[in-house]
């Protein structure tokens, strides 16, 4: 969840001594956190968009065991198997790598948004329960 404050606010003027020292000291830390976040998301997008094209398409451990032991056919089609992003491929795109890479970008975006929103809600929960600790 990106900070609501616009990126890189100008540093507070030196004369502004009314600012609590702790809050002033947190400014560079916040910028470093944002840099880390952007770099981390960049890596996640590169992995999902490009590196995923080189992933092995062999059955995974569970599928392989299910196949060997003869219970693979017990598996039913997924309820969402007709969805346009089913099986990590955006439907309607002929190029397999492009379809998969795009699905990866969509997935990373949704996961970041949902994960961030949920954790944001969890921290609010704390604030409501322990208002003194904000």
């Amino acid at each position: 969840m990106p900070d609501p404050i616009p990126a890189d606010p100008p540093p507070p003027p030196a004369a502004d001594t009314a600012v609590a020292p702790a809050a002033a000291g947190r400014q560079p830390a916040r910028r470093a956190n944002r840099l880390f976040l952007v770099a981390g998301l960049f890596v996640a997008f590169v992995l999902a968009a490009f590196v995923s094209g080189f992933a092995s398409s062999s059955p995974d451990g569970l599928e392989k065991v299910a196949e060997d032991k003869g219970f693979l056919e017990q598996g039913r089609d997924h309820a969402f198997s007709d969805w346009p992003i089913a099986d990590y491929a955006v439907s309607g795109i002929g190029n397999e790598r492009l379809a998969g890479g795009l699905a990866g970008v969509i997935g990373v975006t949704i996961t970041f948004a949902v994960g961030g929103a949920l954790v944001f809600a969890v921290t609010r929960l704390r604030r409501r329960r322990h208002p003194a600790r904000t």
């Binding site: 997935g107 996961t111 994960g115």
Partner: peptide, 23 residues
């Protein structure tokens, strides 16, 4: 949880999603 972990937890989930695509 502190407020600053919100984006980090989101990033962590996004990274794991990407990592799980890489068989």
């Amino acid at each position: 949880a502190e407020d600053q972990v919100v984006p980090l937890a989101g990033l962590c989930a996004a990274f794991v999603f990407a990592g799980q695509m890489l068989n």
